[in-house]
Amino acid sequence: MRQTVALPLLVACLLVASPLRAADPVPEIQRPAGAPQAVGAVHTLRQIPEACARLEGAFTGDAAQPYRYAPVRTSTHCQPRARFVDFDKAKPSVAAGWKLNDVIRVPDAACPSRQAVLRVWRKPGSATPPPLDGQGQSRIYLQDAKQQAGTAAQAPSLTLFAAKLDIEGNACR
């Protein structure tokens, strides 16, 4: 008797959930789930070289905040060509020109039914390197840069990155 009630209920739930998942954009980068990580083990989730940053995360063991992540600057000498911005302030969406760039899944080694899911969004900027000169080099000349900086309408925008963390699956006891 339970199976005859449970099966239609399961099918109905899947039908309701299917359109929600179908609306999710396909990420630009396809990757399998990462290796399970132990509580307290800090690990790199993703490198973003153009923003001179890497995303580091760790399971905390805290029920209120089971996982934390933070962007970390890779080098003080790196010159960023993109910026990593706060997700809540940026409010990325496809309609606003953002693209789902990557979905990173990290299973919890202590609780296999739970995983941290980091969705990285990217908004392409208009900044492009100058064309190659006669010697095959891409050069920026001071006069041209000053002139371009003087007119805000011509100022190129940088590529932006933002990330949102979700915890999926069941919590272990």
Rank of each mutant, 00 (worst) to 15 (best):
A155T: 10
R122E: 11
V72K: 10
G97I: 09
M1H: 15
K91D: 12
L9T: 09
R83A: 05
I48R: 01
G57F: 01
P8I: 00
P25M: 13
L45P: 00
A127Y: 14
T4I: 10
R46E: 10
D102K: 04
T4Q: 12
L9D: 12
G125W: 02
K146G: 06
S157N: 04
K91C: 08
L10Y: 09
C13F: 11
A38C: 11
D144K: 11
E56K: 08
A6H: 12
L118T: 12
Y67V: 10
A35L: 06
E56M: 03
P66M: 08
W121Y: 06
K123Q: 15
Q137A: 13
T44N: 07
T151K: 12
R68S: 07
I104N: 01
P36M: 08
P112H: 02
G40Q: 06
L45Y: 07
A17T: 07
D24S: 14
Y141A: 07
D88R: 04
Q115P: 02
V42F: 03
L160R: 07
D24Y: 08
K89L: 15
T128R: 06
P131A: 11
C52E: 05
V5Q: 15
V117I: 05
R46K: 09
A38N: 14
E168A: 07
Q154R: 15
V39K: 14
L55R: 00
A110T: 10
P156D: 13
K164N: 13
A17D: 04
L9P: 02
V94L: 10
V5W: 13
F59R: 05
I48N: 03
D24V: 09
D102M: 03
D102F: 00
A70R: 15
D86L: 11
D88V: 05
R119P: 02
L15V: 10
Y67K: 00
G40M: 01
D108P: 01
V103Y: 01
A23R: 12
V26G: 08
T76R: 15
V117T: 06
I140V: 13
Q135E: 10
L15E: 08
A163P: 04
V120C: 00
P131Q: 09
P8Y: 03
A23N: 10
P156W: 11
K91Q: 14
A70T: 12
L160H: 00
V5K: 14
R105F: 03
H77L: 15
L15A: 14
A127D: 13
W121D: 04
V72H: 02
H43Q: 12
P25I: 09
L100W: 02
